[in-house]
Amino acid sequence: MSAEQVLFWVFAVATVVAAGGVILARNPIACAMSLVATFFFLAGIYVLLWAHTIAAVQVLVYAGAIMVLFLFVLMLMSLSDQGPVMTFSAWRIAGVVAVVTVLAALVLVFRRLPAQESLAWSGDAARLGDFGTIKHLGAVMYTQWLFPFEAVSLLLLVAIVGAVVVAKARV
């Protein structure tokens, strides 16, 4: 096995185990911590996909900013939840069946994808060039993708104002 295969399986299993912690843990703080672990392992997967920049952004924004926001909210509310973690009504069991069906369908489709070996980039530094570097991404973002970039900045501004207005005690 090559290093990429070993790292892929290590990170994949760790990601799935940590995600299982998110949906199974009783304490919401434990869920949040599992989610942080999931984000870190996913960042490792992103590095394997030659997306170093996105991996760094993932750790900074997701594991950093968003999770701090979650933890702040969790600690603002003194949650003493005594009931069951999950509930299973007839509709929810139908939902679980639907989820399993979706998973089976996705896995079936993905397994039938034609393997495009010629376009696999890993381990070939010469062909890789500046793929996934911050220089290349920045050049594309500030030329071709300038409008979506500005739209996202506007969206973030609206979200800031909206969050303050909604969370304030009295407007």
Partner: peptide
């Protein structure tokens, strides 16, 4: 080739998505 096929990454994404959905 020793590279991990794209399908493996996609299946991992599908598993993660379905866990989130659950």
């Amino acid at each position: 080739s020793h590279t991990v096929p794209t399908a493996n990454y996609l299946i991992l994404a599908a598993v993660l998505f379905c866990m989130g959905m659950l």
